[in-house]
Design a binder for these strands. Structure first.
Length: 155
DNA sequence: GCCAACGTTGGC
DNA sequence: GCCAACGTTGGC
């Protein structure tokens, strides 16, 4: 099965895991997503899909780099780990609740695209762009090809 | 199934 | 650290 490459935006707190960390390790399992909508987006990802790496809770929140999806979704091991802060006692190996994908480093932006920059393009990005919708807290969200192009033109 | 209480996200 | 927004939980 093969469909066209899709695009996503994934948020990370840089104190926890930044684009520089991804550049160092190259490939990282995107652990800790505990929101069903975000999980479902990861389940629909395909290897090679483009990822905008977004820093949240940062001095300047925004897009700092590009990554790509390196695996399809599989169970997030931290849900079974009693010592992990992501442990979920309702998850079992037979019936996992939470999935993740591995993400591979592609490049760091020459110039980060700040949330302010992104908001300034709200008209071009459209009402449906979840990142700048009021109150949005999704940590994994879809980006259309047109939005991807618009965003990267701001670099 | 409703909804109040609670927890989390994330910008500021 | 504050707080608005929103998701989840659990009593009923």
């Amino acid at each position: 099965m093969s469909t066209r490459k899709r695009h996503w935006l994934m948020k990370s707190e840089p104190d926890d895991f930044s684009i520089d960390d991804l550049a160092r390790v190259q490939v990282e399992p995107w652990t800790g997503v505990r929101n069903y909508q975000a999980r479902n987006f990861m389940r629909s990802m395909q290897v090679g899909d483009g990822v905008l790496f977004y820093h949240s809770n940062a001095p300047v929140p925004g897009i700092y780099g590009i990554a790509e999806v390196a695996t399809t979704a599989y169970p997030d091991p931290s849900q079974f780990d009693r010592k992990s802060k992501y442990f979920d006692e309702k998850a079992t190996r037979e019936q996992p609740r939470w999935d993740l994908v591995d993400v591979r480093y592609v490049r760091t932006l020459k110039r980060p695209i700040s949330l302010d920059d992104i908001r300034a393009e709200a008209d071009a990005l459209g009402e449906d762009f979840a990142l700048i919708r009021k109150g949005n807290r999704l940590s994994v969200l879809p980006v259309t090809a047109a939005q991807w192009k618009t965003l990267l033109s701001l670099e």
